[in-house]
């Protein structure tokens, strides 16, 4: 058991990831207003919240804002915890622009903004900035994940899709290290390790591709786009499938080990170059690239980090465990009594 602690650690980390990653609510937001264009005069619309807790006892404060102009709502009626009806009077002097809708729920400690909620079609050149009646606001300390436009709940896939690629890269690195050693003396033993690492790595590549495609369908609307990350993933999968084809076409174990190791090293080096070149070739739809409403490793939310890093470690440990099992079975099948 003492030598197996890391397997238990991997499972515990994944358990933590599933529990916290799936149960943590998203931060409350306004997701929708039932109008996209408002004109001067009295205006009334309904704002749809997600995860909000509006209360009739103390309706939230609502105001419109667009580059320096601010307009407070005349009346806010709470319809239910998720919906409010907003009434306001747009003055003639309001400048025509995209406006953001701000909602401040002081009772629940929730501050929300719906960016570019609608087009306010004023005719004037701007109004004096108003200050809405302020009340003491203390933000709620609830543990939530950010609710970003388009991503919404799928932000949780961060813990089940991205670590697949990390795990695959770890296994391919293990494989390349064994390939280097397979070129030395006693190469056959390391060759078995190299090929088994690749095989398990390909399982994770397949998982990464499939989960990525489902996620892409829900956020970008297509199963596949010509995106550097996706093309890179497809190429890596092709390279390692080619590696297996190469192994399959050589019968002599010694020669097979050497050829496979040479190809593995060559392919790994070119793959690293590919990863450096590829993202610079074009704009990307992928999260964190090309102004997409998402995250990069740098602006990952602190709460997401608390689950994401354990997820990466947990999946890596699971991958290593799978590699360990396969390798032991392979060694067993080769040692003929």
């Amino acid at each position: 058991m003492r030598r197996n602690w890391w397997k238990a650690l991997g499972v515990l980390l994944l358990l933590y990831v599933v529990l916290i990653g799936l149960r943590t609510p998203l931060a409350p937001t306004i997701v929708h207003v039932d109008t996209d264009r408002i004109t001067p005069g009295p205006v009334r619309f309904i704002a749809q919240g997600y995860g909000t807790a509006f209360s009739t006892e103390q309706p939230p404060m609502v105001w419109l804002e667009n580059s320096g102009q601010r307009l407070c709502a005349a009346e806010v009626t709470v319809l239910d915890p998720l919906r409010i009806r907003v009434e306001l009077e747009i003055p003639e002097g309001f400048r025509s622009e995209l406006s953001h809708l701000h909602v401040l729920d002081t009772r629940a400690g929730q501050s929300m903004v719906l960016h570019e909620a609608f087009w306010t079609g004023g005719r004037g050149s701007g109004i004096q900035e108003a200050t809405c009646p302020a009340t003491a606001f203390s933000p709620s300390a609830a543990f939530t994940f950010p609710n970003r436009a388009i991503l919404n709940e799928t932000i949780r896939n961060l813990f089940f899709h991205v670590p697949m690629w990390f795990t695959m890269m770890l296994l391919m690195t293990i494989s390349v290290v064994h390939s280097v050693r397979a070129l030395g003396a006693g190469g056959l033993r390391h060759d078995v390790a190299a090929v088994n690492a690749v095989r398990v790595g390909l399982v994770f590549a397949a998982l990464g591709l499939v989960t990525g495609m489902v996620w892409a369908r829900a956020t970008w609307g297509t199963w596949w786009t010509s995106d550097p990350q996706l093309n890179g993933a497809a190429t890596v999968t092709l390279i390692y499938l080619a590696y297996l084809v190469l192994r399959g076409s050589v019968a002599d174990p010694g020669r097979r080990a050497r050829l496979a190791a040479v190809y593995n090293l060559f392919a790994f080096a070119l793959m690293l170059v590919f990863f450096m070149v590829l993202p610079r070739l074009s704009d990307s739809l992928h999260p964190g690239k090309g102004g997409n409403p998402a995250f990069s490793t740098y602006d990952l939310d602190d709460h997401l980090r608390l689950v994401f890093y354990p997820a990466v470690l947990g999946w890596m440990l699971l991958g290593t465990w799978m590699f360990n099992l396969r390798l032991r079975a392979a060694r067993l099948s080769e040692s003929r009594p």
Binding site: L26, E153, H161, L207, W215, A218
Partner: peptide
């Protein structure tokens, strides 16, 4: 299916696919 209630079913599908794969 995918877009219902904040796209939670996408997460369900992804987790299920990972489990099926394993």
């Amino acid at each position: 299916t995918l877009f219902h209630s904040g796209k939670i079913n996408t997460v369900v599908a992804v987790v299920a696919l990972v489990l099926v794969g394993l």
